[in-house]
Nucleic acid binder design. Sequence first.
DNA 1: CGATTCTTTGAAAACAGTCAATCTGTGTGG
DNA 2: CCACACAGATTGACTGTTTTCAAAGAATCG
Lengths: 192, 192
Amino acid sequence: MFDIFANYLSGNVSLTNKELGLVQSLSVQEKVPKQSFILREGDVSDSMIFVANGLLRLYKTDADGDEHIIRFANEYHWINDRESYATGKPSQFNIDAIEHSEVLVWTKNDFYCLMKELPALREFMKALGARKQIANQNRIYASISHSAEERYNQFVEHYPTVFNRVPLHMVASYLGVSRETLSRIRRRALKK
Amino acid sequence: MFDIFANYLSGNVSLTNKELGLVQSLSVQEKVPKQSFILREGDVSDSMIFVANGLLRLYKTDADGDEHIIRFANEYHWINDRESYATGKPSQFNIDAIEHSEVLVWTKNDFYCLMKELPALREFMKALGARKQIANQNRIYASISHSAEERYNQFVEHYPTVFNRVPLHMVASYLGVSRETLSRIRRRALKK
DNA sequence: CGATTCTTTGAAAACAGTCAATCTGTGTGG
DNA sequence: CCACACAGATTGACTGTTTTCAAAGAATCG
């Protein structure tokens, strides 16, 4: 399973076999059955998690019991709660598996060491962080300027690999509309 | 004016006078009169900008001519278009001054050198970036889970120094509601 | 097949947007 | 000092969209 990660890296970062060995030696492989959690509200998110395959979600359950999905993470993506990870405080969010998934996990400490030892990897992670911020800014822009329909189309277009593996009510939760509204949006779109 | 920035740093980063001198030597001071631009759609955002005093906004004008404010930046904050800055591509956004402002500017190249030479400053900027990401994630969460009224209250509470210096229609634009709706939200709130 | 989860639909109520008009406060020029 | 212009804020009437609640119709899985 580590080879998936090695393959991911090889397209982006050039590491020697020895360095790659170090990265591997600090990683832990985990299977995440469908519906099971890798982070629960109240826990501290103290690890870096790479999704080798499968699909997870980061979300919060509010006082009314409604779930709000912050983001999805499918294969070749990272996931944790950045706030809890950065501050060491308990997370407000949950992460669970939408599909049976396999992940690679590094503790915060170990990952910090890797960042220190491997400048190439550090630069890559930094660039990744920048891209995530850009994506977040675009999502914020969409949320204040686009209609639900436009946001839906944008989601389908931008994340086709996620879109058709996720139940519609989760897409609705991600977009911030009710599942009924999203259902009607789609029907209107079909008529065209 | 550089002393404002030095003062800002002193609370967060410890640099020698010589190092501080280097930072200053690469900086350029600029006055930004009210309503004037420091970034226009189509330009490349190729500098780091620190607001010493005043108040700016990052926003986009859409096809209908409506303005959508991504964020505000008052004194002791940084502003540019991260996407254009990172990619070198033309920006989709504008930045202009809501109040007469004074800023410190570093070119992308010079700032890169500073990051290389001054690890303490680099770490500080990195932590700043992490905080911004957390704030963005919280804003995304608010946009998909909170009502306009809740988002308004949250804005007033979180950014009191910005809130009472900004015309209401700009707050509306930031929150993603029409100015009339925001006006009515406030009236309802007053009745309580 | 039965149970569960997911999706769709209808009807009513709540909410937000648009347009047009008015009101308020600020500052400028006569 | 007043009149006026201007930008910002509010209001009413109307329209359109979204939510909510309840029910029923697919799809999936053991």
